[in-house]
Design a protein around this nucleic acid. Structure first.
Lengths: 337, 337
DNA sequence: TTTTAGCACTCAAACCCTTCGAGTGCTAAC
DNA sequence: GTTAGCACTCGAAGGGTTTGAGTGCTAAAA
């Protein structure tokens, strides 16, 4: 469909544009890349590429700029895949470990690292609580009428909530109830918490049972929004496309729309996925590109992580870095198991 | 020092400027405020106010703009204090309660609310862990070699960490150790964890003792940065002073310098404090003003909360809102007790 | 003595014009 | 098929003018 020279020209235009953020002209290409043809020839090729829709002209006397379609072709067919080094991998894992052993923190840290590696904004969707399984439930006496509920979920999530009770429970009463609850819940995934189990809990554990059920249900609901973390937004202001504050505001607002990310990153296909400009269904993000990957625990997809930036981004680098962070995160989470 | 009319003029200039963000001229004042004198008179007054240093002129044919010193006088002497309503107070408490009963979450939520009430960026310094006291320590068996350490601190902070042990402990061993640790630690503040206690713990509890001590010490260190939350940064981009992206970047960077906030908000004097422009010792923040207050648990200062914005801010409103959030937060935290 | 009307003056912002140059498309020759 | 050459386009940059908000000063009025 595209002969070799056209590919070379397209690639040259895109890579120059990614680097300089300025429309690139035929002479620049002729000078900077040794294609062995004159600018006039390149001019002809560029006109063709524009006709197919891979390049665009901001105005007639400016150079060319890649279109979304052009970037797509570049990402799929032209770009030189970049492979992260083993050294980078270890470095990243070390960084992550330095911080927290707790799953949600680890996910946040992964996002922060990704943002700093790419100089861009990163978004992480942490594993939805629905996929987690109860590993351990414990009621602890803290004060006269204060009971601490500790829920250990698998993998490596601990939730705790202090509750106030009407009745004052003794340590051994609580211990006994903990054992009972454990029996009921151990191994059950959050999502499989059917009404039967809940009703049993209310019936068997009285006041505490009531509170527990409310806590289980509300815990589930509340976490929805807490599950999306973003970082690195400020540094993206250095990108020339955001010299216009309005553009920047759009990006920031997009980052705050956590539901969008839940949906966008929910797709659990394999490998790194790239969404370019208008390919994105959300109108506010059609100037932006998203590069994302899923991460795994023991082979099962549990969440995803990605970067957002202007469509003019270094896709090869972004893909490599997202891949890097996603694998490192997957490995750490799996080891946590 | 300043006669009544000068005060009226200064106040009019500042309030107009806060509202419009444009340098204000003598005619505008004469028109919009009924001072009963002509623009020429106001012009003379403004010249005087400039001489004392309360007003400045961006250039000779522009109107006047308040100087830092002018804002200071306004805040101390001129501005009409705004009192939040009881209804707002209840509303805010309700909002806060809707979210979390856990101290750190509550602090974050307070920041988020403050940001949205003021359309500005808010920063919260959560109570430093050094001030917290151990209330309950518990080791829980989670898996063969996984032990969950739960630290309940007063007021209302729960920390937990999963640790891997060499030895596999039985539930009852862990229970016994929990009781021993409790005895040692209960009531001790984090800050008073002297080497004696730590040494005793290592001596008495072997492997677990080692891990516990490491955890206690590292926990202390790691939390430092985690203790500062900021929110509402994006909305501040709407302020006209940030139409220049460079300015905005400065603010964002300032918000990320958590140590600055720790120091800035560490000062635990009573009431709401206002730092205007150059009064701020940090060079990067000399275009910004900070309005902050401390919050309390049972009468004792534990942390502080504030807003940052351009020096042209609605000080009366900011002060009222910071006061509102700080009292609501104090009351909730105290009740948690 | 204070206030005010009047007026000359200043200066950024807005507008218009010109120039400059990067870049194009087309044509004709190689 | 390639390329040199050239006319053409159009944004960006620079320069000049106009406009208008705002000032300070002066002299007269209160």
């Amino acid at each position: 469909m595209l002969d070799d020279r056209k590919r070379l020209v397209l690639r040259a235009v895109i890579e120059d544009y990614i680097e300089t953020a300025e429309p690139v002209g035929s002479r620049t290409i002729a000078r900077r890349h040794q294609l062995g043809v004159s600018s006039a020839t390149i001019r002809n090729e560029m006109a063709d590429l524009e006709e197919i829709g891979y390049l665009e002209q901001p105005h007639v006397s400016a150079g060319r700029v890649p279109s979304d379609k052009g970037y797509r072709f570049y990402v799929d067919m032209l770009m030189e895949p970049l492979q992260y080094t083993l050294q980078q991998y270890h470095q990243v894992q070390k960084e992550m470990l330095r911080h927290y052993r707790e799953m949600e923190r680890l996910c946040q840290e992964a996002g922060r690292l990704l943002a700093s590696l790419t100089n861009s904004a990163a978004v992480v969707v942490a594993p939805p609580i629905e996929h987690l399984a109860f590993q351990h439930v414990q009621l602890l006496p803290v004060d006269a009428n204060d009971v601490l509920v500790v829920l250990v979920l698998h993998p490596s999530v601990v939730k705790n909530r202090l509750i106030k009770t009407e009745k004052a429970y003794t340590a051994s009463e609580l211990l006994e109830m903990s054992m009972g609850l454990n029996q009921k819940l151990k191994g059950v995934t959050y999502r499989n918490l059917g009404p039967t189990i809940l009703r049993e809990i209310v019936a068997e554990f009285g006041e505490i049972g009531h509170v527990m059920v409310e806590l289980l249900i509300n815990g589930l609901v509340e976490e929805k929004n807490e599950q999306v973390y973003s970082s690195g937004a400020p540094q993206i202001l250095s990108q020339p496309e955001f010299k216009d504050v309005e553009k920047a505001k759009l990006l920031f607002e997009a980052l705050e729309q956590k539901e969008i990310w839940l949906k966008l990153l929910a797709d659990d296909s394999e490998g790194v996925q790239v969404t370019i400009g208008k390919e994105n269904p959300y109108a506010d993000m059609q100037d932006l590109s998203v590069v994302k990957a899923t991460y795994h625990v023991g082979g099962q997809v549990v969440g995803s992580i990605g970067v957002v930036g202007p469509t003019r981004m270094d896709y090869a680098r972004m893909v490599a870095m997202v891949e890097l962070i996603a694998s490192a995160l997957s490995e750490l989470l799996t080891d946590m198991k």
